[in-house]
């Protein structure tokens, strides 16, 4: 054969014309959907901040307002269930804005044929979770869809909370030099759920980390108001949370791979399936951006709290590579921690 081999290539697909599961993954597809479909029609400077919660002044008080929908399979999993998750998820979105939760709403979309006893267990779990926090579920709604149109139970919760005097948390406040704190090991929720997925099943004692974070946040803010921003790395994992902050704040973030705690169960599953724990979902962890002078005391406060017992310093904010998250490997090299286009898929190669 003479000359280079003529390799050829396919053309890309036409513009995405349908919703695929990746649009709900919290990665790049979700961001595109928001940018291309919703934001052009919803005219709000508060929404345009794209925080996990809307924070606004109302008659002298600063309120936080947020909504979240929960579609999890299976409904009951090791370490939690859709009911408690629906309460914690919204409470955590409020907490990431520094707010203590006041009231929740609960909307249910039920699939025809669902056993009432199942729904009773979900409701009981929600009630217990709300009592523990405490937060009141003050209004709600129920709709039923035909069999096959839903997956048993979908829940939406909306929450309203009060931001204490002097607390100001926003990605816009993050600046170079700030330190990045992580409240504990990553990936527990995503891997616990994956273990029960058809076609992938594996056995593990790992439980979801599903938990409320408002107490941890209050403990952190009690020692310093120089916490600049927080995120709970849910869908899309730690990577998405860091990339969101980097792009909103226009800063770079460098993290140390060896500093990021990962349990043996999560590691094993990720090695087997070819997944990266940085992209696996959490439901009871937070990542905080703290002014350097306050980092030690905030970290100590986190470690004194049960939800932050394993908190660590994982990295720092820099001005050298804006809007890029870099990870330093144990080999001293760096690589990009990107946002994924969609969900991580188990791979064979």
């Amino acid at each position: 054969m003479s000359g280079p081999i003529q390799f050829t290539c396919p053309l890309p697909l036409a513009v995405k014309d349908r919703i695929v599961l990746g649009h709900g993954s919290g990665g790049r597809l979700s961001a595109e959907l928001l940018r291309d479909v919703f934001l052009p029609f919803f005219h709000s400077p508060i929404l345009n901040r794209l925080d996990d919660q809307a924070v606004f002044e109302f008659r002298g008080a600063r309120l936080a307002f947020t909504t979240d929908s929960f579609v999890v399979k299976p409904l009951f999993f090791r370490g939690g269930d859709i009911g408690s998750l629906a309460v914690y998820g919204t409470v955590n979105d409020l907490a990431m804005g520094g707010a203590s939760p006041l009231y929740l709403s609960a909307g249910f979309i039920l699939e025809e044929g669902l056993e009432i006893e199942t729904l009773r267990r979900v409701a009981e779990s929600m009630g217990r979770a709300a009592d523990d926090i405490p937060v009141e579920i003050v209004t709600g709604d129920t709709k039923v869809v035909e069999k096959g149109s839903g997956d048993g139970v979908f829940i939406n919760t909306t929450g309203i909370g009060l931001v204490p005097e002097g607390v100001r948390l926003s990605p816009a406040l993050v600046r170079p030099g700030d330190l990045v704190l992580l409240s504990g090991p990553i990936g527990d929720h995503g891997i616990a759920i994956l273990a029960e997925r058809e076609g992938i099943q594996f056995s593990t004692d790992l439980a979801s980390d599903s938990a409320p974070l408002h107490g941890l946040v209050a403990a952190m803010l009690a020692v310093s108001l120089d916490v600049r921003a927080m995120r709970d790395p849910t869908r899309g994992g730690l990577s998405s949370a860091l990339n969101e902050i980097a792009s909103r704040a226009g800063v770079g973030i460098t993290i140390e791979e060896s500093a990021i705690p990962v349990r043996e169960e999560v590691r094993g599953a990720c090695e087997m399936l070819g997944l990266d724990p940085l992209y696996v979902a959490n439901e009871g962890k937070l990542v905080a951006f703290v002014a350097p002078h306050a980092a030690q005391s905030v970290l100590a406060a986190m470690r004194r709290h049960p939800q932050g017992h394993d908190a660590t310093l994982i990295g720092a904010v820099t001005d050298t590579h804006p809007e890029l998250v870099l990870l330093r490997t144990p080999f001293g090299t760096t690589r990009i921690v990107d946002m994924l286009p969609g969900d991580q898929l188990p791979r064979i190669c």
Partner: peptide, 10 residues
């Protein structure tokens, strides 16, 4: 067989 990978088995 059941095979252990870190903290999981399959």
């Amino acid at each position: 067989g059941t095979v252990r990978f870190g903290g999981i088995t399959r």
